[in-house]
Amino acid sequence: MRGKQVIKLTVNGEPYEVEVEPHMTLLEVLRDKLNLTGTKGSCGVGECGTCTVLVDGKPFLSCLTLAITVRDKNILTIEGLARDKKLHILQKAFLEHGAVQCGFCTPAMLLTAKALLDENPNPTREEIREYISGVLCRCTGYVKIIEAIMSAAEEIRRRGSEYE
């Protein structure tokens, strides 16, 4: 198959039909076709994790995923994390704990952290370190990111909800 093709994607709960070419990455399609520029690109070799989105709930590198291969799947990008104008507790915790500096890794960190908490609502510090290790951050030294995830996990457990 060559040339353009229309595929269906569900992004942040919204159904989309987009015209893609086979060589287009999910990153390109999200940013250039759907105008969802919250997903960032950086290294293009899988090393920095900046382009992470959740595909059917799992952290994926959108820069190394062909859009055509994830057709009909559920994609969550950073734009879909807050709901009804309410921040996700992880988002709030990142701000309150100073876990955000330049913010360029933040969408990837948040989505990776969400996948972790969905999988394991009560992670240890070590499990958090392990799970987020595929996302690089040049600003924070990771300390406050880990603190923020610990605290958000606790709050989500306490509330029984990811939102306030």
Partner: peptide, 9 residues
């Protein structure tokens, strides 16, 4: 192998 992303894909 540390990257969860790499291991998922």
């Amino acid at each position: 192998i540390h990257s969860i992303q790499v291991k998922n894909m």
